[in-house]
């Protein structure tokens, strides 16, 4: 679904707490009540032990950049993103070892390096949907 400024996720029963959490400033991950594994993206059961008993747990607000790219051209996505070019997206490694794709905010995207510290700064789209944005801190 397109929105002003980009593409909206499709909210469903498995992921709605994740998107709502970000709208409220929290990054929520699934945790298995049986084996304790964390997982992301949200899935209908624990991909480690197969338990259906999953709970939501808040992740730390800090992480580090595992890898990143600077988008130079918008291909196969909403043309609305062209206004923001160039911009950085990356994989943020959270404490505990889960990685989440996120938009990386930096005054100068070319200063981003693997290993940079980042702090959660979610982008609220509606009161039910937020997106994982992190700010790069020097």
């Amino acid at each position: 679904m397109e929105r002003a400024g980009g593409t909206l996720p499709e909210v469903d029963g498995v992921n709605k707490d994740f998107f709502e959490g970000l709208a409220n400033g929290k990054l929520l991950l699934q945790r298995c009540s049986e084996c304790g594994s964390h997982q992301f993206y949200p899935k209908p059961w624990c991909v480690v032990c197969g338990s259906l008993d999953l709970e939501w747990t808040e992740a730390s607000k800090e992480g580090k950049v595992y890898t990143y790219t600077i988008i130079n051209r918008v291909i196969g996505n909403s043309k609305e993103f062209e206004k923001e070019l160039p911009y950085a997206v990356g994989s943020v490694e959270l404490e505990g070892g889960i990685r989440v794709y996120a938009r990386l905010l930096a005054a100068n995207p070319s200063s981003i390096r693997i290993g940079c510290r980042v702090v959660l700064e979610p982008r609220r789209l509606t009161d039910k949907v937020g997106l994982p944005y992190f700010r790069v801190v020097e």
């Binding site: 499709e10 993206y41 790219t69 988008i71 996505n77």
Partner: peptide
């Protein structure tokens, strides 16, 4: 958007990622 994976639709495209090109870029950078 109709044809892609739900995980790309939900956790990649809303961030402004551009499909395989951006995923390959993340791999190449690492």
């Amino acid at each position: 958007l109709e044809r892609t994976w739900r995980y790309e639709l939900n956790y990649e495209l809303p961030l402004g990622m551009i499909g395989p090109l951006s995923e390959a870029a993340l791999i190449a950078r690492r």
